[in-house]
Design a binder for these strands. Structure first.
Lengths: 106, 106
DNA sequence: CGACTGTATTGACGGATATCGAAACACCTT
DNA sequence: AAGGTGTTTCGATATCCGTCAATACAGTCG
């Protein structure tokens, strides 16, 4: 997708997703969720590994959710989060480089 | 890479790269550079398509450069920028989803 | 119903970021 | 060397972002 210039709208939407990934805590949250057994994790699994407060974790999870990177659902007492693979796949594909870079490596 | 939790340091470095991509102007700059003939573009090619001032473009290019996403070189009058494929490949691979998501699609 | 646990929201504060105009710097031309 | 064009840096300002403490909300259990 880096073969042709991005339109303004596309760039705006994608930049929102990348912004969600631009914080170390959120990146680690995402990887914790993705790598957690069953592909999902409840908030109680996610607050332990960090030095920040629980409201801050909740805030970051909200950012990830509003960026369309994770889904969430309340099941009884706990709220579970899981990764939305299509979103990550979209970003991954975007960063895929054309096979033959025009500037040959020196 | 989302199979196991990210370490703090790794997350910090990666988040710096994603932060560089978290601005629509920078995303469009990157795609303009990548898709430009020859795989590189001079600043004079990059200021036209945007509504922001030329110093602002220069600032964004600096951010991309310091994030390790692009390289630059002065050749005579003009400064040329090109994409560093390894960096983008690294991010792309990170977002690659495990082939079998644990939570099966509904 | 009332108390308790898990999660989300609110409000506030400090630091970072995007942007601009002005000025400085680099190189080319004459 | 002097002037001109392309690019970066500087200084200032308005806004955004991460964080916390306090509070509110949701569901469970006695």
């Amino acid at each position: 997708m880096l073969r042709e210039p991005l339109g303004e709208e596309a760039a705006a939407e994608l930049s929102r997703m990348f912004k969600a990934l631009s914080d170390p805590v959120r990146l680690r949250l995402l990887s914790l969720i993705a790598s957690h057994e069953g592909g999902e994790a409840c908030v109680c699994d996610l607050t332990g590994p960090f030095d920040v407060s629980q409201p801050t974790i909740s805030h970051h999870l909200k950012v990830l959710r509003e960026a369309g990177l994770v889904g969430s659902e309340r099941r009884g007492t706990w709220v579970y989060y899981w990764v939305l693979p299509e979103a990550l796949a979209k970003l991954s594909a975007l960063l895929q480089i054309p096979a033959v870079p025009a500037k040959a490596p020196a």
